[in-house]
């Protein structure tokens, strides 16, 4: 569904990737790993069309990203749920409205029951009316996940979803992502937390990709 072919990218400094390729197929589960600063976030941003590659082709849901209009990109993003590294909420709206925002901007009406079920699923029923700055780190991550899945996206991309939360909460988040994968969604998680990858591999067949020396390699047995 998301296909990167011979992608190169770099900020003004220097080249971060050189001719890397990757494919996110339906129902797949991928981890993207590598040390901090390796370019995980950058690669994910390329996947959700927040950045355009300097070389190579990206196709999303069968369409070349370079040939898509801004409205096409908006439409494609509705089919990709993203949990951003820094979560990014509208701080003046309560959690429940932030979670429903993707529906709102797509002019779709939130079903109150679905919204409540979703809140319960991520364990935020009691925090529905809180403002984002009042949430703890774990609560923010779960709210971000709820917002990412509210449109029933075909692909879920999570950038360091367990970044600054304790292990117990990390496992819970991982459990939610695995559950989504069992429901047929493709999942792509960027993390430098090898424990998280190990915990996942026990429960789901996941591929692990590592960024090293500007290339992408399949990481295997050593994990």
């Amino acid at each position: 569904m998301i296909e990167l072919t011979d992608i190169s990218y770099g900020y003004d400094g220097g080249e971060l990737f050189s001719r890397i390729s990757m494919e996110i197929g339906p129902g797949s589960f991928h981890f993207l790993t590598g040390p901090s600063g390796a370019g995980k976030t950058t690669l994910l941003r390329l996947c959700y069309m927040d950045l355009m590659p300097s070389g190579g082709r990206i196709s999303v849901f069968g369409r070349e990203v370079g040939a898509m209009s801004r409205d096409d990109i908006a439409a494609a993003r509705r089919r990709i749920g993203v949990v951003h590294q820094d979560c990014r909420f509208l701080d003046h709206l309560p959690v429940i409205e932030n979670i429903a925002l993707p529906l709102e901007v797509a002019a779709r009406r939130p079903e109150p029951e679905n919204l409540e079920a979703l809140l319960a699923w991520v364990g935020l029923s009691a925090r529905a009316q809180a403002l984002p700055p009042e949430l703890s780190g774990g609560e923010r991550q779960r709210a971000a996940l709820a917002r990412a899945v509210i449109m029933s996206p075909e692909v879920i991309i999570a950038d360091e979803p367990t970044g600054n939360i304790d292990w117990e909460m990390s496992e819970r988040l991982l459990e939610l992502l695995i559950e989504l994968n069992r429901m047929g969604r493709a999942v792509l998680i960027a993390t430098h937390d090898l424990n998280l990858i190990r915990a996942a591999k026990a429960r789901v067949s996941a591929r692990v990709l590592r960024i090293r020396d500007r290339r992408l390699q399949a990481a295997g047995a050593e994990l």
Partner: peptide
Amino acid sequence: REVIRVLRLIGARDSY
């Protein structure tokens, strides 16, 4: 600007 970025990232069209 940050609000607009969030809206675009969650799939808002420019017209919205």
